[in-house]
């Protein structure tokens, strides 16, 4: 990716520094996220949900794409975050920003506890356990009908205005600004983590789980740390969802949500920082448009679309584009 000039002395700091540097296209990407305000002001609610899904996918990317940990139960953290933020607001503290922090701390704690199980297992067992945990949390929320509202959903979530000025309006203006800012700030943090020596060691573990301990990397503690970070940001995404919709449904903890976020990530391209963001946007827009076109059988078209994309672009949209560029370049040279 960041190829060294042949002959030049290898300088690891330089490699890391080059990764951290902002590229013009990244800046264009983030500027483009402001376009909906002008171009599609009627779609801001969807945009805010895309931003939330993107953050959620990004948090999963840290595990799946960068650390090589498979998870089919990431909705646990989304749900815990959503319910913590929702319950806090329901019981009298509706201030959004402190609510976000509260929810992410709660989720990080849950992630910390679960991480003790996670670092002990790998591969298929990991899939089983994460799915199991997801079902477990879903059922707990369902059975705590008095607290969570069960299948009726958590009602009575009332959010205060942001800074006491901007209330969450029906058009989704505040919601989109709020989620976009939160997602962008989270992205900055995650980008920094991924491009740090710590992030590099995660990629090392993904590539070779045996060699990393041999060169002195404490695998288990690193995995625990990354697990907690990932949980924390997934919880943040959940909290954003609870706050902007002022509602939490059991669906926040569902297996379907876990599966969907993985699909988004794979669709965009795992381990590519922007993969989750692009994947989330593509998935949500496709779903929205297809469901409008055919309310009865739209899942068929969504399924077909996913199969086609994955057959032709096994590494996701970004992976496919990267391969394309490589081919064009090699032909030129």
């Amino acid at each position: 990716m960041n190829a060294q000039t042949p002959g030049a002395a290898f300088n690891p700091q330089e490699v890391l520094r080059a990764q951290v540097r902002w590229r013009a296209l990244e800046i264009i990407f983030w500027v483009a996220t402001l376009a909906p305000f002008v171009l599609t002001p009627n779609y801001l609610i969807l945009c805010s949900q895309i931003a939330i899904a993107a953050l959620f996918a990004l948090s999963l990317d840290l595990l799946v794409g960068y650390s090589g940990i498979v998870s089919l139960g990431h909705a646990v953290y989304f749900g815990v975050g959503a319910y913590s933020a929702g319950l806090l607001a329901k019981h009298g503290w509706g201030e959004p920003i402190s609510g976000l922090l509260f929810a992410s701390v709660v989720t990080a704690l849950v992630g910390y506890l679960i991480s003790f199980i996670m670092v002990r297992i790998t591969h298929f067992a990991l899939i089983m356990v994460t799915v199991g945990l997801c079902l477990l949390f879903g059922e707990i929320a369902n059975s705590l009908h008095d607290v969570t509202g069960g299948d009726d959903g958590l009602q009575g979530v009332k959010m205060w205005s942001i800074f006491g000025i901007y209330r969450f309006d029906m058009f989704g203006r505040t919601a989109y600004v709020y989620t976009l800012v939160a997602t962008f700030l989270s992205f900055l943090v995650l980008r920094r983590i991924i491009n740090s020596p710590f992030g590099l060691s995660l990629r090392g573990m993904r590539e070779n789980q045996r060699r990393m301990p041999a060169i002195g990397v404490p695998m288990k503690s690193r995995l625990q740390v990354v697990y907690v970070i990932s949980a924390c940001f997934a919880g943040l995404a959940g909290a954003l969802s609870a706050q902007t919709t002022q509602f939490v449904a059991l669906d926040a903890l569902s297996f379907q949500r876990s599966a969907e976020v993985l699909v988004m990530l794979i669709l965009g391209g795992a381990g590519r920082l922007y993969g989750g963001l692009i994947g989330a946007a593509m998935f949500m827009v496709a779903r929205d448009q297809l469901a409008d076109m055919n309310p009865q059988y739209w899942y068929f078209w969504l399924g077909l679309l996913l199969v086609i994309v994955i057959i032709f672009l096994p590494n996701g949209i970004l992976g496919g584009l990267a391969a394309l560029i490589d081919r064009v370049r090699s032909r030129r040279s």
Binding site: I28, F29, A32, A35, N42, Y43, Q289, A322
Partner: peptide, 21 residues
């Protein structure tokens, strides 16, 4: 370089959303 396409992808998405009735 793939970031170029990330940017384009984002723009395309934004355009797609512009089909207001």
């Amino acid at each position: 370089m793939k970031k170029v396409f990330a940017g384009i992808g984002g723009m395309a998405t934004a355009m797609l959303l512009g089909l207001a009735p």
